[in-house]
Write a protein that binds this DNA or RNA. Structure first.
Lengths: 115, 115
DNA sequence: TGTCAATATAAGTACATAGTTATATGATGA
DNA sequence: TCATCATATAACTATGTACTTATATTGACA
């Protein structure tokens, strides 16, 4: 974002292209309220582990998400310090919450918890 | 948008994918404040007429823009009645205005005006 | 009615993207 | 130290995308 609080067109289209994939968009919405690890995404999206890993890499490459290892697992979370976070947040606010996915994980005992 | 004012994930990702192209995103920002015809876009983007036409078609197919013939020209404008217009508008508000492009057209005497 | 200007469509091409399977890496715990 | 679990990467493939050039369509107007 520049001084006017706007984001240049090239940057904006790059971000929107990344969010223009249902899997990644849902990941971002999920991460906005819950940290998740890779194996949880595999379960939620019923998708192969490499496919999930590759989506996360794209989000990580432009620093929309952060990763943090905890024991065996690598947890992903939203990078709220991203220069364009307000822009992203604004978009995510228009999307339906994905709490059901998390609740289902918990119900199945598949929610990873490191305490 | 559903009753909660949210937009379902599939729809949202479809819209974001369309906006995730710098040409189309800039078109939408331009159209938010100015009606434009195809030949103006050709000039602004320095792009072939078929390429412009094809971008406009994608925007038209999901009804983000309307077309209206006036004399020889077909003018495009934002469809403010689109169900997801608030979502789109919100995104466009974060983008830098494109008035310079329009001003340049006018300076070159290439702005089409039907009165 | 025939020509022209503006626009749309069709067909082809090069490159991008999202998956796949196979393999590598790296921490954990017996 | 070795086997295992979670994750990442590499190589490949099928499909999608954004252009290109060539051609069709449509309305305006001489």
């Amino acid at each position: 974002m520049n001084t006017e609080g706007t984001i240049d067109m090239q940057r904006a289209s790059q971000l929107l292209k990344l969010l223009g994939d249902q899997t990644r968009l849902t990941m971002m919405k999920l991460l906005k309220s819950h940290e998740c690890c890779v194996c949880e995404f595999v379960e939620i999206f019923k998708m192969s582990q490499p496919a999930i890993s590759q989506h996360l890499r794209k989000l990580r490459d432009i620093e929309l998400v952060k990763e943090e290892r905890r024991g065996q697992w690598i947890f992903y979370s939203i990078n709220e310090n991203h220069e364009d976070f307000p822009f992203i947040q604004n978009i995510l606010e228009h999307l339906p919450d994905q709490n059901k996915s998390i609740a289902e994980l918990e119900a199945q005992g598949l929610r990873i918890c490191c305490n």
